[in-house]
Computed example of a mutant assay.
Amino acid sequence: MSNSNDLILKIDNLHTQFDLGRRVVKAVNGVSFSVKKGRTLGIVGESGCGKSVTAHSILQLLPKLGSITGGSITYYKDQEEIVLSRLKKNGKAIRSIRGKEIGMIFQDPMASLNPVYTIGNQLCENLLQHERVSRKQAMEKAVEMMTVLGISKPAFRMKDYPHQFSGGMKQRVMIAMAMMCNPRVLIADEPTTALDVTIQAQILELMKEVQSQFGTSIILITHNMGIVADMADDIAVMYMGRIVEFGSVRQVLGSPQHPYTQALLKSVPVLGIGRNERLQTIRGNTPDPSERLEGCEFAPRCDFATAPCTIVPPETILADGHRVRCWNCRGGIA
């Protein structure tokens, strides 16, 4: 397949599973999407839908029990096509891409930073591993990144340990670590988790500034539809390991076609809601991923489920890249 000039990452029919002995959990089940240069893709869905596993699959950061069992992940570097899904988990090839070409902001900065090393040591580690620079040059780069991300007295704070930073400051450090080598792709896994609203806004604004300055492509993983509306260019809605709807922000948020997307949007709190008005919820619970249902996985919770929903729906291409996996959409109900 020829490489499009603006394409940087392509996931095609990805399958990732966890072998738990008697149970096999198919966490990602046939996911396909692409990321373009300088654009932001938002991946949304409830907890357990496969968002984070998809991100970890890209960088081969799966635990021992996890493995990619099908499909491909292709990274486009200049004129070269690198199939990441074929690389060994801890091999030299994938380690040369992690952090340097594709950076990642992990979900929990409290757990991702090593408590026994200074912030400066942890910031410099990635740069020293991937670039031919001296430790002094690495420290200067780290101070520069901390300055860009709004950390006061960066040269002094480099000597501090993670416990001396607030949650918001730790998240800034995580972004700085991910950006030390100016990666072409940045994966942000729930970057505003456990942060208050004011700090959330600051972190998101910082990510926009970083993207504008370096032309970075961003994969933003979140369950917050408001963040996606503000940050993303394109949206992938995931449920039970599948992408059920994909399109631009205007398409998915302005004209949602899948019942699950519609339900997610209706469950978002609205400012000014009446005291006697109840928030809408999605009935039922997400099924156990190790127990695959026949047909559409969302059917037991869907208000539009009909007889054809006992068969897995194919993808329907609507217009301009907007695609939906739903039988009712084909019939015009959704």
Rank of each mutant, 00 (worst) to 15 (best):
Y239K: 03
I333S: 10
I151Q: 08
Q107E: 11
S255I: 00
Y76F: 15
V24Q: 08
G295N: 10
P289G: 03
T281C: 06
E131L: 11
E277Q: 14
V25H: 00
S4N: 14
N13T: 07
V270W: 12
I221W: 02
V44N: 01
C49L: 06
P308K: 11
T69Y: 06
V25P: 00
R157L: 07
L264C: 09
L127H: 00
R157E: 08
K10G: 01
P287C: 08
L61E: 02
L14N: 01
Q202D: 13
G50L: 03
R86I: 02
N276H: 11
Q171T: 07
I43F: 04
P154T: 06
M225Y: 09
R283P: 05
G331T: 07
T69P: 02
I82T: 08
S152C: 07
I235D: 01
R132V: 00
D233S: 11
L279A: 13
L20I: 11
G30C: 04
Y117L: 14
Y260G: 04
E80F: 09
I199S: 05
I11V: 15
R301V: 10
L204F: 08
L253E: 07
V25F: 05
N224I: 11
R323Y: 09
V210W: 00
Q137E: 15
V53N: 01
L206V: 10
V324N: 01
V25G: 00
R283Q: 12
G274D: 13
E190S: 06
A188C: 15
V312C: 11
S47A: 09
A176K: 00
T16V: 15
S217Q: 04
A178D: 03
M179K: 02
Q17G: 04
K266R: 15
T54P: 03
N90M: 11
R242Y: 07
N90W: 09
D108C: 14
D230H: 12
I73R: 04
C181E: 01
V28F: 03
I203D: 01
I221Q: 02
D160E: 15
M179Y: 03
E144Q: 15
K89D: 14
E245I: 09
T216D: 01
Q122E: 11
E144T: 12
R22D: 10
R292D: 10
E125H: 08
L9Q: 01
G321Q: 03
M180E: 06
M158R: 04
I218G: 00
Q262L: 04
G272D: 08
G226I: 06
P63L: 12
Q200W: 08
A142H: 01
C181H: 02
D230M: 12
P154Q: 07
I151T: 07
V148G: 00
N5D: 14
A201C: 09
H223V: 10
P191A: 14
V210T: 06
M110A: 14
H223F: 08
P287L: 06
P256F: 03
M238E: 04
L84W: 09
G284E: 05
S134L: 09
N285D: 13
N328C: 14
S2H: 10
T306C: 13
V252G: 07
G295A: 13
V268L: 12
V116L: 14
V116W: 07
H322E: 09
C296P: 04
F298H: 05
S255V: 02
